[in-house]
Design a protein around this nucleic acid. Sequence first.
DNA 1: GCCGTTTTCGGCCCGACTGTTTTCAGTCG
Length: 582
Amino acid sequence: MSTKTNAEIAAAFDELGDLYELDGAVSYRVIAYRTAAKAVRDASVSVMALTRDGRVTELPGIGKTLEEKLHALDETGDIPAAQKLRAKFPAGLIAVMHLPGFGPKRARLLYDELQVDSLEKLREAAEAGQIRTLRGFGAKVEENLLRVLADHDEGGSPAPRILLSRALPVAEQIAGALRDHPAADRVEIAGSLRRLGDTAKDIDIIATASDPAALIDRLRELELVESVHASGDAGARVVTHSGMKVDLKVVAPDQFGNVLQHFTGGKAHNVQLREWAVRRGLHISEYGVLDDETGETTRCATEEGVYERLGLPWIAPELREGRGELEAALKGELPRLVELSDIRGDLHCHTTLSDGRQTAEQMAEAALARGYEYLAITDHSASHGFGDHVTAEALEQRIEEIAALNASLDAIQLLAGTEVNILPDGSLDYPDELLARLDWVIASVHTSFGMDEATMTDRMIRAIEHPYVDAIGHPTGRKIETRPPYAIDMTRVIAAAARTGTMIEINAAPDRRDMNEIHARAAAAAGVKVLIDSDAHSARNFELLRYGIATARRAWLTPEQVANTRPWPEFAALRKRSKGAQ
DNA sequence: GCCGTTTTCGGCCCGACTGTTTTCAGTCG
């Protein structure tokens, strides 16, 4: 039997949490399973490997009982308690429980009283007017339910998430417009947008103003606003023409810090922060910090003030995911996170030779304008498969062109490179003699995504072991909105990269951000030098590096752990080909 | 079910909203 992935284990714990909830278990037990599921999902190493090593209880939220369940999952592929409860509750009941406005209590009552065990049965009961007869239910619930079920039928996606690169520029534009208003004092973006996650649900803005009504009016009148859904003394909710919800809250200056902290989240971070505070006799909310001893609530004008009141240093929003940041803050071990200004070169971009829009010279000039010290030109290789392939002969000619360009450009080092395809068997589609003549080789998978995990992982590791492969590009192949990652064991990939001195890229293209923050954190911890690359297909695309930086920061990466923060001579020596030569 | 700068037992985040209620339960973020 194959080893369960962290995602599969997390799903098993979530399912068991749902089943226990239906079974009426004390809520804290249910919460414990959900917490454990998150800890597993966020773990940067294989949880099953930890289990076999007897070290899994080192993960926060995993104790003796869950350790036993992990052993069962490993040995039998299932958890006995889950099997028992699945026999007790039909699967359709869990779907009922997850409907908006419904939960375990309501689902259970419907099951016990009306034998509702599926969405179809639920609809029948609602249409027959049976639901309003139940205690705690009424006509309103029944009406809302029928509406929810109708949405469900139309494949109604509940509040689609928006890619960060679409939401953030809009949020920044709105925040900028508000800041420019004379009534504005402080204006900040909050929510998952401020934490720079892959996607956001909506745009949250927190502000203070000398004249709140005037600032709220300013928002309502912005050209990009399509409609106003709610508006009052304390804020407004509007929707943009592009369909994004925008929430503006105007608050008193002396509690701006509390509100910004509260609405920045994330959920797990805030829960942990509040639990931690309770143990010290403090209670945190968006309104302030209440001290049990004095009965007084402290309001904070700044976010720093909130953390300081708790005896903690300010924590960067990108770290606020409940992944150990409180413990690190307490010990004074928060990382100095990598910043855009630390980056000295880009090791992955395309030109008109393959599918890019600008020439190598234009790309070099754009990189120079960004202050880069080096740039690798990495067009697609011989079998790219989309009509943009670069033959071996063309690449040989390109090497000469780059040499000539380098002679004419003093301030930047150009690298003659390639983004070479990793073929299904793990071999590369240029001869070794040609790869040896290049300054830089990044290898990526662009075809045959459907193979099984072991085969795909072996394929990738064969490329990693190739002496002329300096780095692996977008290692899981995911496209956030359109394509899941192919099956690959990143634990093995990272181990192979660490062993061979192969770098792994964080591809900054905002629909990729691949590797993701979990893998990037694991890679750095394993000693892999991480790259942050734009994969630019035009000079303008260099701007997208900020999204790679965001992923790196969410992965807790320091400049030291990112290879392309180094000056050129140091970076040059870090390449596998340089090490091999010495 | 987890966990300990009070605790190995007895706690376990905070507030808003909705719809049902006549003081609250359930759900949500």
